[in-house]
Structures are given as C-alpha cells and as structure tokens.
C-alpha cells in the first residue's frame, strides 16, 4: 500500500536520528577519555547520512529519480582533528614530554548536536503522527 511508503521513509529517518543521538552521547561520554581500544585518545564520531530508494515508493508518480527516498547512515567517520594537549606528567597516558592528549570533543557542540538530533527525531515522529491521522480521516469518510 502506497500509504505505508511515508511510514517507511519516516521510520528510516527515525533510525538515522537515533544513530546520531547514539554517536553524540558516545562523544559526550568520552569527552575526557584519553585511551581507546587502540591505546589512542578517543576521537569524536560523526554519522554520514545517505538517501536510499524505498521499497514501495514506485507507486508514487514521478520520474525514476524523483521518488520518495529514505535515509540511512552510510558510514560513521572519526574526526581526525588533533585533540588539545594538557601538561600532566603524572597521568598514566602522558607522553615522553609529560603531555596528555585529550579527545577532540567539544561538549557544547555535542549538546547542540544532541538537541538537533532530538528535534529531527521529533519531526519524523510528527510526520508519522500526521500520516496516521490522515489514514484515520480517510477511513472516516465512509462512516
């Protein structure tokens, strides 16, 4: 049913925004982590979104490239900008010069990211809600 295409599109949006929230909270949680699994300081993670064709979208009229598209996280990239270095010779992760490299995470940016992702999630949820109301309204016509 073509009615469910928008549901699937919004569902993919919800999944993508949730991934973004996951990564933002990971960045926040590791804002001070000086050692990751590879022994290096934590690097902030960013999702890369990609538009994907949705199954069932073919029922929508339009050219092949102009169908409703869902979104998916195509990859997660680690931000390679260097983190700030703090002089702290007693720290177990200090280098030979006594400097500790902290993650390149700015908590303020991450919180803004989190807010934006949460708003995006809400927007997709609102689209689902609207669609549901439309479906019910459409069914009410023949009451």
């Amino acid at each position: 049913m073509d009615f469910f295409t928008a549901l699937r599109v919004s569902g993919s949006g919800l999944s993508a925004e949730r991934t973004r929230v996951n990564l933002a909270s990971s960045n926040l949680a590791n804002a001070e982590t000086t050692r990751g699994p590879d022994g290096q300081p934590y690097k902030r993670l960013d999702p890369v979104f990609q538009a994907v064709a949705m199954e069932g979208a073919n029922a929508t009229p339009g050219a092949p490239g102009e169908k409703p598209m869902g979104v998916e996280v195509s990859q997660v990239v680690a931000d390679q900008t260097p983190g700030k270095r703090v002089y702290s010779p007693g720290h177990p992760d200090a280098d030979a010069d006594g400097f500790v490299t902290f993650p390149n995470v700015n908590p303020v940016n991450e919180v803004v990211n989190l807010l934006s992702a949460s708003r995006g999630y809400e927007a997709n949820a609102t689209a689902v809600e609207t669609l549901k109301q439309m479906a019910q309204r459409g069914l009410d016509i023949s009451r």
Binding site: R8, G11, A125, V128
Partner: peptide
C-alpha cells in the same frame, strides 16, 4: 528490536485492520 520500528509496525497493523473492518461493515 527497536521502539519506533515496533510503533510503526503497530500503526500499520492498526490502519490495515481498520480498513478491513470498514470493508467488512460495508
């Protein structure tokens, strides 16, 4: 699983069930 996928599946089931009931009542 995940929450919104579940909500969407419930929603789909709800809408299609309502439609089926409409057809039956008619």
């Amino acid at each position: 699983g995940n929450l919104h996928e579940m909500s969407l599946a419930l929603e789909k089931a709800d809408i299609s069930m309502r439609l089926a009931m409409k057809v039956r009542n008619k």
